[in-house]
């Protein structure tokens, strides 16, 4: 039976593109609100900014059900192990947004108590600058991540990729070849 017998509401495409599109369109963030930034994260989910437009209003409370961790706030030395544990509990594929300067670099708190950037603990995909980042900034970060997911590779290993990838440059990560799915040429 040939393709011509099928009805017209039908699309063909690469499975990989479809998977990436699906991942991008239903990203579920885990709540990882720590400090001031968490309040802005909540505001983005509320009426005025309405994160639901991007299919993301469901903040999952269990890391097991989430694939995006938004680290919103300063990470103290006492919190760092907890953060790593929550990250480890999340299922692959997973992404991390460092929200605010504290999560990105330690911000103004360059002292004994604050981890100077969560990228020391978990790999970060997108950094959202600001103190606190406005909900618009957070949304921009989320859209950037969506773009990254849509255009990136589906099986890239965590931790070996550059932090921000806008255009899918032909950059080959050094990963064991066994885990790579070869692209249909």
């Amino acid at each position: 039976m040939g393709l011509e017998d099928l009805p017209h509401n039908f699309l063909t495409g690469q499975l990989e593109d479809l998977v990436k599109w699906a991942r991008k369109s239903s990203m579920w963030p885990a709540t990882f609100g720590l400090a001031c930034c968490a309040i802005e994260m909540m505001s983005s989910g509320a009426a005025d900014f309405d994160l639901a437009r991007f299919g993301m209003e469901v903040f999952r409370n269990s890391p097991r059900q989430a694939d995006l961790m938004i680290v919103a706030g300063r990470v103290s030395q006492k919190m760092a192990p907890v953060l790593r544990q929550v990250y480890d509990q999340m299922m692959e594929p997973k992404w991390v947004i460092a929200m605010g300067v504290c999560a990105s670099t330690g911000g103004m708190f360059n002292n004994y108590a604050v981890v100077q950037g969560v990228d020391q603990i978990v790999p970060v995909d997108v950094y959202a600058p600001g103190c606190p980042p406005t909900p618009e900034t957070l949304m921009h970060a989320i859209l950037t991540l969506h773009e990254k997911v849509r255009t990136g590779e589906i099986t890239r290993r965590r931790g070996v990729e550059p932090a921000v990838v806008f255009d899918a440059a032909p950059w080959v990560p050094e990963v064991p070849s066994a885990v790579r799915v070869s692209r249909p040429s």
């Binding site: 400090a35 300063r74 103290s76 919190m79 907890v82 103004m108 708190f109 002292n111 004994y112 108590a113």
Partner: peptide, 23 residues
């Protein structure tokens, strides 16, 4: 408690009075 300990009291000693309210 202590999971958000930021060391602000120590940080304040390194910032001048005019910077203090930022902290």
């Amino acid at each position: 408690i202590g999971y958000l300990h930021t060391g602000m009291e120590k940080q304040a000693e390194a910032l001048s009075f005019i910077q203090g309210s930022t902290n």
